[in-house]
Design a protein around this nucleic acid. Structure first.
Length: 491
DNA sequence: TAGGATTGCAA
DNA sequence: TATTGCAATCCTA
């Protein structure tokens, strides 16, 4: 429970720089007191918390709670705090109720097929040792493939392959560089493959096995106050970056299973929340119309730009990238990296986008103007972000700040939307005495364990709640769902 | 042994 | 030359 008090406290003592002050930092600052750290009691995470000796664990937790209360009392007398409490609504309606939802999810956990992971580990091991041999013979040398330094020494100083990018300490050998090299030199693609498998083995397979409790379940920790965007973050393990894409990586997801053989794992994910939010907030008629008609937004963009409804999958990719650009306000340069077009073309696409969605441009301009005046921007749910840099004399800094001002209302609003949905769904499940439970949240996706006889009702009710979080909005949000035995097939 | 640097996974 | 995270490994100080 101590962590929940941490959370509450941090809400009170947010500092002007938008970063949270940690309990141990505060204890040190206000009382010159050094708190026991999590690393201390778990011998640097070699022990799980449940394995820590009870007395030690109790002292650690007790200190957390005690210090939280001491600092709370201390901070209450600080007039600066009261100013920060203007937006009570966010705390009362979102963050506090969410704490209880998250604690239920953490304690319930998600079931893991240990054997599946062990089997995968063995296969990765075999593949890795094969690759290792191949690489050594191609390099005429034995070296540590996991060491970037040794890799570039072999590639660039021994074999004299062309270098691409420099880093602080030497040459870059990341997958982008290696992929280019791979066109001429087979060793590069072997190294990429080796790294990929090695990553899966250590960061995912081994780490997941390590944090699986005796009940064969993984109990992650959700943090409400880490991300500056108010999104959740997940640790021990991080279940928000489990690989999705290739076949081997997909097997990691398939190790996540429902509570019992007859239950189902069901995932509900918001589709294109950011673009929909952009439509809602900018009130652009064309964008809204496209969503009202249920059209594929990327195709609509393409039609606007090129006045034709024939669209190939490559062209859809271009349109998608353009939509992406507009939301994140990335540079034409970056756009050319993502899709194979020239900077000039990128610029044309973007101009065409604004021409056809004129209110988007207006919305952005208005946001920037308002931010310049007030030096902060606000989300749909009145969260504020101060961006004083927007009035900086340095043009680079100012334009960076402008991008921040554009991104923030959309990104931060989508974090709140799913939080509110979680609270409402959790209340609904409780009110109706459903046995099904919410298991995971991955930014725009919720994963549930659904009991068979509740399936028909919940498959309707849950998306319904998620879609109607913004009752006043001209369009609804949209939720896709997938129901299968394991998480892999939920896509 | 602590922590920076590099790398790579997700949304 | 987009953002936010978590975590692994190597290697220097």
């Amino acid at each position: 429970m101590a962590r929940f008090y941490d959370t509450i406290l941090a809400q009170y003592i947010k500092n002007p720089g938008q970063r949270w002050l940690w309990l141990d930092t505060l204890a040190d600052k206000e009382f010159n007191y050094t708190m026991i750290s999590y690393d201390d009691i778990t011998s640097k995470k070699t022990l799980k918390f449940e394995e820590v000796e009870l007395t030690e664990a109790a002292i650690y937790s007790g200190e957390d709670v005690y210090m939280t209360y001491e600092i709370y009392k201390h901070q209450q007398q600080n007039p600066y705090i009261t100013q920060e409490l203007k937006k009570w609504w966010i705390l009362e309606s979102i963050e506090f109720p969410l704490m209880y939802v998250l604690s239920d999810m953490e304690m319930h956990g998600i079931k893991i097929q240990r054997d599946q992971l062990k089997w995968l580990w063995m296969r990765l091991e075999a593949a890795l040792s094969d690759l290792e041999k191949d690489i050594y013979s191609l390099a005429w040398e034995i070296f540590n493939i996991n060491s970037p330094k040794q890799v570039w020494e072999v590639l660039f100083e021994k074999l004299w392959y062309p270098t691409a990018k420099k880093t602080k300490t030497g040459f870059s050998v990341n997958s982008e560089v290696l992929d280019n090299l791979a066109k001429s030199y087979p060793i590069a693609s072997k190294i990429v493959q080796f790294r990929h498998y090695s990553k899966l083995r250590s960061t995912y397979v081994e780490w997941l096995l390590n944090v699986t409790s005796n009940d064969n379940r993984i109990h992650t920790s959700y943090n409400q106050i880490i991300a500056s965007t108010w999104r959740l973050s997940s640790t021990n393990p991080n279940l928000q970056n489990i690989p999705t894409w290739d076949d081997v990586a997909g097997e990691i997801r398939s190790a996540f299973i429902a509570d019992s053989p007859w239950d189902l794992l069901v995932a509900f994910d918001y589709s294109q929340v950011e673009v929909r939010l952009l439509a809602i907030m900018s009130k652009d008629e064309n964008l809204l119309k496209a969503f009202k008609e249920g059209r594929d937004i990327h195709q609509v963009t393409w039609e606007f730009i090129f006045k034709t409804s024939n669209i190939t999958s490559t062209q859809r990719k271009v349109a998608k990238a353009v939509n992406f650009w507009v939301i994140y306000w990335i540079s034409p340069f970056w756009l050319t990296k993502m899709i194979d077009i020239s900077q000039k073309e990128a610029r044309e696409y973007i101009d065409a986008f604004y021409e056809n969605y004129p209110r988007v441009r207006e919305f952005y301009d208005a946001t920037i103007q308002e931010c310049k005046k007030k030096s902060y921007v606000e989300t749909l749910f009145w969260r504020r972000r101060y961006i004083p840099a927007i009035n900086d004399k340095n043009k680079m800094i100012a334009s960076w700040a402008e991008r921040e001002a554009i991104n923030m209302p959309i990104q931060w609003s989508s974090a709140d939307i799913i939080k509110i949905a979680m609270i409402q769904i959790s209340a609904m499940l409780k009110d109706w005495n459903y046995k099904s439970t919410m298991l995971l949240q991955v930014h725009d996706e919720l994963v549930f364990n659904i009991v068979p006889n509740e399936y028909d009702e919940l498959i309707i009710k849950i998306p319904k709640i998620m879609e109607s979080i913004l009752p006043e909005a001209p369009i609804e949000l949209k939720v896709d769902s997938g129901e299968w035995k394991n998480w892999k097939e939920c896509k």
